[in-house]
């Protein structure tokens, strides 16, 4: 089991599993509706702020702020 890290620590091409979304219930709910939820695999396409991740072949760009963040479990083989 690898450690939990914030999403934006991933480097280009790295694949990880979303472990949990942290933040206000309303913001987290929105992210989940868009498909960002625990258990799904994501790939970092463009690191930075905001970053672009691929989620089941679809691209989302995401910038976390003080109130919402995504924790991922990295080091999962692609």
């Amino acid at each position: 089991m690898s450690d939990l890290i914030p999403l934006h620590f991933l480097s280009r091409g790295e694949v990880a599993e979303i472990d949990q979304l942290v933040g206000g219930a309303e913001d987290v709910h929105r992210l989940e509706e868009l498909g960002l939820r625990s258990g799904v695999m994501i790939e970092m396409l463009q690191p930075g702020t905001p970053c672009i991740v691929s989620l089941a072949g679809h691209r989302l760009c995401f910038r976390q702020n003080d109130t919402v963040g995504i924790l991922v479990r990295a080091g999962v083989a692609r």
């Binding site: 992210l31 960002l36 760009c61 910038r63 702020n65």
Partner: peptide
Amino acid sequence: GAAPPFVMEL
């Protein structure tokens, strides 16, 4: 208020 988080589909 703080800048909101930003998530958008490409």
